[in-house]
């Protein structure tokens, strides 16, 4: 769901660009704490992998496709701060090189996918992780459920933007209903891809997975 130019008016797009710039700026600051010699390569790989998988549109219903957004996948692997930066890099390259997502709409897309998708998704991941047993399977399950919810959450971001500044005048409730129902279906694909990817990384390098580290090891890292 990359918003093209024209759907949302310029003042609203500019306002969201400003909000997104502040959000991404805050994440630049937060990300330095979670990036070191070991996690920087995984962060680069996460962005690259999400770019690749976003090319793979899967069919969801008659005449409709969806693709991975990747917010929860990135947040669980490298933490929400770095995830926001990774998804933002992907979105900007897609808009600049591939004309996928508008240039004036870049702030809208960054808000929905890099900020809303990542942070709402990661919050849900943390809640589910807390109520599940402390083991590797729980990480995959929590990531899958959070990924599923993150897609309609990001879609609601678009509905908000449409409500505030659509150039068209169609009813908001029609947009809300259609966006929500379609993106719940796409969320199923998001959950499957996220679970497979998180499980694969957990099987090979669980020590690198941000969402698997407990509060204790985080303290140790800071002390070092």
């Amino acid at each position: 769901m990359h918003i093209p130019d024209g759907f949302i008016n310029i003042p609203t797009s500019a306002a969201f660009a400003a909000i997104s710039a502040v959000g991404v700026g805050a994440c630049l600051k937060g990300a330095t704490r979670s990036l070191d010699e070991k996690t920087a390569p995984l962060a680069g790989l996460t962005a690259t992998f999400i770019f690749a998988v976003q090319m793979l549109n899967f069919p969801v219903a008659a005449g409709t496709s969806g693709h991975l957004l990747g917010g929860v996948l990135a947040a669980v692997l490298v933490g929400p701060y770095v995830a926001t930066l990774a998804i933002t890099v992907v979105l900007l390259l897609q808009a600049l090189l591939f004309a996928d997502g508008g240039l004036t709409a870049a702030g809208l897309n960054v808000f929905n996918l890099s900020l809303l998708g990542v942070w709402a998704g990661y919050a849900i991941f943390l809640v589910i992780k807390k109520i599940m047993p402390k083991n590797k399977t729980s990480i995959s399950v929590a990531a899958g459920v959070a990924a599923f919810i993150s897609v309609p959450a990001a879609a609601l971001g678009f509905v908000l933007q449409y409500a505030l500044g659509a150039n068209a005048t169609f009813s908001l409730s029609a947009v809300l209903t259609a966006m929500f129902s379609t993106h719940v279906l796409i969320g199923i694909g998001e959950a499957i891809i996220t679970v497979l990817s998180v499980t694969a990384v957990m099987a090979s390098r669980p020590d690198l997975v941000y969402g698997f580290r407990g509060a204790k090891s985080q303290l140790e890292i800071r002390k070092a």
């Binding site: 024209g6 240039l103 678009f158």
Partner: peptide
């Protein structure tokens, strides 16, 4: 096939408001 947003835009009717990217 069109992705979720594009499909919704077509069904609801605001797909026409899209402008081509500057790039």
């Amino acid at each position: 096939q069109p992705d979720g947003l594009e499909k919704v835009a077509g069904d609801v009717g605001f797909l026409d408001s899209a402008k081509e990217s500057a790039v």
